[in-house]
């Protein structure tokens, strides 16, 4: 394993990693609470995953196997770019197989395959503050979190139901963590929210530009906000994947021609490939 000359393992110097790990420990101790941290400028732009990268860089060791996905796929341009970055500065093994990774850095999706206790998932977060549209002032939002004063968020959901008949949030759907903190799960589709509840893996969230880290320790209660008479319902396209036939995974809509032709395929490319591989010998037998 070789890394770039003149750079520390995983780019960040050890003091910075220590600072970030301390923030991570605080975050794990207070599930769902945002911990400010001194984010550094990284060689990728703010808004493109610097928070997730700094978290990964701080927990990565030479024995780790890293998977990086964006929109559920390993081959999207930003996932490729980040995976290459870690190959250059850390020389770690990388993989596209969810089951083989020890650390998974993700943008906007949780893998379909359930994660294990020995895995860590690192989410890239653009906007860590779930209240920011309702209360743009950070000083006031901080107070609302301290006082667990979340009426404003429920008002927003009430307004959606009054106006549209149901809650309009389709992604970055707010959750209550450990029955105490309101948290933004990052812009994963609402469909993925239930996966966070009592997940066996450690979930870490990094927001580089906004300079916040937060965490959900393994086996923690995570509930999407709703009303008793308007319960949370995950949304997915009501189709089967055209490649693997799955009816319970999140699907991407692909436009195939300019006459309105479309097909739906699993967004999680690894999971879809695995399902297809399992089905293939059976199909061959038929």
């Amino acid at each position: 394993m070789s890394t770039m000359d003149g750079y520390n393992f995983a780019y960040l110097d050890e003091a910075t990693k220590r600072m970030i790990r301390r923030a991570i420990l605080k975050a794990v101790a207070i599930p769902g609470h945002q911990i400010p941290f001194g984010a550094r400028e990284m060689p990728l732009p703010y808004g493109w995953g610097t928070g997730g990268i700094q978290v990964t860089a701080s927990i990565l060791g030479p024995a780790d196997t890293l998977k990086v996905i964006d929109q559920g796929a390993d081959d999207t341009t930003n996932a490729v770019s980040i995976r290459r970055f870690f190959t250059r500065v850390a020389g770690v093994e990388t993989t596209a197989r969810t089951g083989e990774a020890s650390i998974i850095q993700t943008r906007h999706r949780i893998p379909e395959k359930p994660l294990r206790e020995d895995q860590i998932i690192v989410y890239q977060v653009p906007q860590p503050e779930p209240l920011f549209m309702l209360e743009p002032r950070r000083a006031e939002a901080k107070r609302l979190h301290a006082l667990a004063d979340y009426g404003l968020m429920h008002v927003r959901l009430y307004e959606d139901i009054a106006r549209l008949g149901h809650i309009a949030k389709a992604y970055d759907y707010p959750v209550m963590v450990n029955a105490r903190y309101l948290m933004s799960p990052s812009p994963i589709p609402a469909f993925d929210n239930p996966k966070m509840h009592r997940m066996a893996a450690l979930q870490l969230f990094g927001a580089g530009r906004e300079k916040r880290i937060y965490a959900i320790p393994p086996h923690t209660e995570v509930h999407s906000l709703d009303f008793e008479d308007h319960p949370f319902r995950p949304i997915r396209a009501p189709h089967a994947c055209a490649l693997c036939r799955s009816t319970d995974t999140y699907l991407d809509e692909v436009i195939t021609d300019d006459a309105g032709g479309r097909m739906f395929v699993c967004s999680d490319t690894d999971f879809c490939a695995e399902r297809q591989a399992r089905a293939a010998p059976q199909e061959a037998a038929e």
Binding site: G151, H154, V155, Y158, A162, R163, F227, D229, H230
Partner: peptide, 18 residues
């Protein structure tokens, strides 16, 4: 909305039935 304004304090103290 008017309804949201009146309902807010209820929601702030834990009311969860729309």
């Amino acid at each position: 909305s008017a309804g949201g304004n009146v309902g807010e304090r209820l929601m702030a103290v834990g009311a969860r039935h729309y």
